[in-house]
Each structure stands twice: as structure tokens, then as C-alpha cells.
Write a protein that binds this DNA or RNA. Structure first.
Lengths: 152, 152
DNA sequence: TCTATATAGATGCAACTGCATTGATATCGG
DNA sequence: CCGATATCAATGCAGTTGCATCTATATAGA
């Protein structure tokens, strides 16, 4: 558990499982959305953050912090969301470089419809397979892998 | 824990952590490889499978089964690996449609150099943060999320 | 055998990603 | 106040992915 350059078998196995399972789950969730003719998960993440932010909206750089998407990715994703009428870009008074992104009613509606499908995927893919206790344990272990390290 | 359409808060939290942490870890590992001017993780996955397969090599469809990559993805990845001399494609006698992919010495060498970096990432990102006991617990919990469900 | 269907793998095209850079505004130091 | 530097966001270009389709061979069924 101390700093080494070579991973233990337990570390390798946990890593491999993490890589494989997370990819599988993402794929399943994406497929479920596609089957319902809904946009991809990335759109949900952004709409979710914007919905939580409320009327004040968020600056693109705040979305970057919250979602882990790259800057150029957010820039283009927002362009697509705006083109679809799911968000609106507002000039912000005190910073001429920036803008504020606000979710529209249509955006909220889309998010709602996505959640109906996405939430079901989560329920089926993890909720139905682990007890709440095990889910808590899993979340706690994963929490210790966050970067930068979170306080205990 | 029974089949529901709406996920519990514990399920949502575990899901969110899983999505976020796995993305962070992949990104870190990819960055480490890039910093060493090495190919991306996907190449490692394929070289690893081929190295394990030995002289007999593997058919592309076997790689697809083992790696979860899409068919077209494997097809093009193998083309790049072949162009770099890391694998070779052999016609297979008893099936005119197919081919067998075998790793070359150069491929083995590349895999080795990738593992030096990749293994260190694993050691630092997970090995240094959780005890082996916790890693085993994590792997076991993740194992129960595999699809299709593995036998207990 | 001859036709229909299934499987292995490749590929054209459109969309998306990653990288580097750019344009624009803000802030800091003198 | 001015120039240097930093931050916010967009974008050109190359590489990759996803989708659908295509070619080729194999297998099954009449």
C-alpha cells in the first residue's frame, strides 16, 4: 500500500475490474438512451448540472470543473445543446470574455425524459445487483480513489 | 435491491462515483503513457491479450470478445498495430474469411515498455490508496456488476 | 447442388475528440 | 496608464469512433 512502482496482484485485479465494468455499464446506459432515441450521457451530465444550478446558470468553466469534460469538448457540446434549444447562452455583464449558460424549459423536459431511461438503467445495472449496504461500501472505496484525494 | 425502475440514493451515488472515478483514472493513465511517448491504453489491451495467447495468436473476433472493443474498432486498431510492426496477420488455413493475429517481438517490447508506465500508474492510483484487503473487496463488488452476471 | 442465410472482417462517411492555437477580455506590475 | 501575462472560450486540423454497409467465405436447407 506504500508507494511502489509495481502494482500488487490485488491492485491489478481491482483496476482491471474497474476498467471493464465501468465501460460495460456506460455502454449499456448509452444503448438504453439510444434505444429511446435520446441524446448521449454527456448531454445528461451537462443538463443535470445546469438544472441544479437553477436560474443563475453556470459559466462554461464551471461546467468543466464539475463534469471533467475538456474545455473544447464543453465548448462544442454547448453549441450543440444551444442548437437544439436545450440551453441558452447569456452575455455576462461583469466579464466580457465569458457567458452564462442557462437550461431552457425544453432542456429541462429533455433531462426529465433522459432520467426516466437513465435512472432505470442505474436501478437495473447496479441497484438490482448490490444491496444498499454494499453500494455504500462501493461508493466509499471509490471515493478513496478520487483525485485529488478527498479529505477523509 | 429488487427490480425497480427508479434507483435508490445509494445506487445513484455508487453509480456517480464509478463513472467519475473510472474516467479520472483512465485519463491519468493515458496521460502517463503520453508523457512517455507511448501508445494509448487500447493498444496495451490488445498487445496484452495477444501476448497471453502466445504463438498461436488470436482471431480478431476473439479479441473482440476479450476486450469489449467494437468490431470496426478492432479492425482498424489491428491495421495500425500492423503498420507499426507490433503484430502480424496470418492467413488461417481452415477459414478463408479469417486471419490470425500474432504479436511480434517488437510488439512484445512495446508492451513491456508500456507496462513499466501503466503498472506504475496502477500502483500509484489504486495500489497506494487502498489496502490489499480493500482492493479485494472492491474487486468483488465490481465483479457482481459484470454483464452478463457471473456465477457466484 | 443450388440457393439462402450466417459469419469474418474491412471500409465510406459523418460525427466526435484531442491538440494546438487563436481572439478577446481581464488582471497584474511598474 | 501601459505593456506583459493570464483567463475564457472558440476553432482549424488531424486522428478516431460509430454506423451502416460491403465483400468474401462458410454453413444450412431444399
Amino acid at each position: 500500500m506504500t508507494k511502489k512502482t509495481s502494482p500488487s496482484p490485488a491492485a491489478i485485479k481491482a483496476w482491471a475490474r474497474l476498467m471493464r465494468v465501468s465501460r460495460q455499464l456506460v455502454e449499456r446506459a448509452e444503448d438504453a438512451l439510444k434505444d429511446s432515441s435520446l441524446p448521449p450521457l454527456a448531454w445528461y451530465d451537462v443538463l443535470h448540472e445546469l438544472a441544479e444550478a437553477g436560474e443563475g446558470g453556470l459559466r462554461p468553466f464551471q461546467l468543466i470543473e464539475r463534469t471533467l469534460f475538456a474545455q473544447y469538448n464543453v465548448s462544442r457540446l454547448l453549441a450543440r445543446l444551444e442548437a437544439d434549444g436545450l440551453v441558452e447562452k447569456l452575455r455576462v455583464a461583469d466579464d466580457g470574455r465569458g457567458q452564462t449558460i442557462r437550461i431552457t424549459d425544453k432542456g429541462r423536459e429533455t433531462r426529465r425524459r433522459m432520467w426516466a431511461v437513465y435512472g432505470r438503467s442505474i436501478a437495473e445495472l447496479v441497484g438490482a445487483r448490490l444491496s444498499d449496504d454494499d453500494l455504500d461500501t462501493l461508493a466509499a472505496l471509490l471515493g478513496r480513489l478520487r483525485h485529488p484525494a478527498a479529505p477523509a
